[in-house]
Each structure stands twice: as structure tokens, then as C-alpha cells.
Amino acid sequence: MQIDLTGKTAIVTGSTKGIGLASAKGLAQAGATVIVNGRTRAAVDAAVVAVTDAVPGASVSGVEADLGTAKGCAALVEAVPRCDILVNNLGIFGPHDFFDISDDEWTRFFEVNVMSGVRLARAYLPGMEATGWGRVVFLSSESALNIPADMIHYGFTKTALLSVARGLAKRMAGTGVTVNSVLPGPTLSEGVADMLKSEVDKTGQSLEEVAAGFVMAHRPSSIIQRAATVEEVANMIVYACSTQASATTGAALRVDGGVVDSL
């Protein structure tokens, strides 16, 4: 299968590292014009360099904006008024006991993880409908289905994304625009690597070995019995954005390594 997105403009939010950056590289490799996003100019510039290093000749630019706010979303839309592909990758996570989470923290997670995607989809979907083609992908998580006891506030936001994506797919019925969710499982992103660094230092094991041990301790239902790479998750995102995925919409596409124990 040759995915060709030449002539398409793709925005990937929160794309200065991790799954977002890998997705930006994958979309650029497929020929799309890619806009990366982050909160600081330095991070955005570094991401642009990373994409062009990985894909020489890529058409890539960056927009500095904090999409966890309505103002930041408006700034992105002003800088890039239209797109063909929107990958709502931006998200935050972190373990906290339910009884220690303040109202402000609940609101922060909702604004960043849910409302950023809601605001951008509301801004860009009408343009996609007008042209008769578009792709929107929301980055959910296996935690949307397996709500973590230590991250209830995070799981809640990822479940919300499934509802938004499914509803929007129905709203865009018959327009040539698809809306899907991608559900990664444990993934060896920079954030996870930082979390596991002390264990790597202590044991002398490789990062991949420590990550596999973490997965089996905390997600024992994993079938691949290791953390996925960011590229493996990005592969699913790029496919969902392709012309070949024209009959896939309203779907929750799992890249969870088999963690979710259901058919």
C-alpha cells in the first residue's frame, strides 16, 4: 500500500515530541504539507528540524500556541486557516489519587485533552466539508476503556474523546470527511522514558527491557508484552489519514498491544 498525501495540509497538535512528532514525520513521508505545534518557539523549531532531517525536502512549518486555551486555539486557526487533516494529538497525563485532585486540575485536564480537539474540529471541519474531503483523528487511549485507578481524571478525558469522535463522524456523514479515534496502549515516548529513567539507572537494563517489565506489571493483559514504539502508533494515525481509509469512520482504532481484553 502506497499512501500518498501530496497536496494535503496536515496539522498535528502537541507534535514537538513523542507520538505527535512521529506522526508529523509519517505524514510528511507520505507527502503532506505538515504543520507542527508546541507551546514554545524553541520546541517548535526543533520539531521542524527533526521532521526535515527525517524527511529531506519535506514541506513543514510550525506554530507556537498553547492549545490548552481558547486563545491558543484561535491563534493556530488564525495562522493556518484551513487544513485537510487534523490530528488532535495534544494531551497531558499524570497519576494522582482521586481524592487529591482539585477542581482546577480536573478543569485543566479537560481543557487540554478534550476542549483543544473540540475547538479545532469546530474550526476546521466546515472547510473540509466544503471541499468534500477531510480527516480528523483524536488521540484517545486504552485508558479510555481500562480506566486507571490512579488516573481517573485522565481516563475520563480519553473516554470523552471517543464520544466526541463518534458523534462528529455521524455529524459529518456523507461529506467525504472521516473522524476516528486512535487508542494507543503503553508507548515508549519521551515522557515514559523519563518516568522509567531511575529504574534504568538502578538496574542497568535497557530502556526497552525496563519498559517491558513496567507493561507486564501494570498492564498484564498486554499481548505483545512490551511497550509500543511511537512509530508503531504513528503508522495507524497515518493510515487513518489516508485516502485508503475512506470507509473507516466513527471507529476506535486500537494500537494497544492487546491490552484491552475484549473482542
Rank of each mutant, 00 (worst) to 15 (best):
K17L: 13
A160Y: 02
A169H: 10
M216Q: 13
S140V: 06
V87K: 02
T107Q: 12
G20I: 06
E78A: 15
V230L: 00
L263I: 13
K71H: 12
V238M: 10
A160K: 01
P220V: 11
V118M: 11
V48I: 15
V238L: 11
A169K: 04
I101H: 04
D261W: 11
D194S: 15
G68H: 08
L86Y: 08
L67I: 14
R254W: 12
R254F: 14
R219K: 10
V233W: 01
V200W: 07
F98A: 13
A65I: 05
S189P: 01
D261V: 12
P186H: 03
K158L: 13
A50V: 07
A193Q: 15
T6R: 12
L125D: 02
N146E: 15
V114H: 03
P126R: 07
T16N: 09
I223P: 00
I223Q: 14
A42N: 07
L27P: 06
R82Y: 07
F110R: 07
V34A: 10
E231F: 02
M236F: 10
V182M: 04
S189G: 11
F93E: 10
L161P: 01
S59L: 12
D100W: 02
A245M: 09
R219F: 14
A65E: 04
A165W: 01
P81V: 13
Y239C: 04
G18I: 05
S242F: 05
S221Y: 07
G117W: 03
A75I: 07
P184V: 04
T40H: 06
K170G: 08
V210R: 03
D201G: 03
G213L: 03
T40V: 05
V44N: 02
M195T: 13
A75M: 12
V136S: 05
G185Q: 05
W133M: 06
A217G: 13
V112T: 14
A75E: 15
P126C: 06
S222C: 03
G155C: 12
D53E: 15
V200K: 00
G155I: 08
R254A: 10
V255W: 01
K25A: 09
G257H: 01
S163Q: 12
E199G: 01
K170S: 11
T13L: 04
L263D: 13
F109L: 09
D104Q: 13
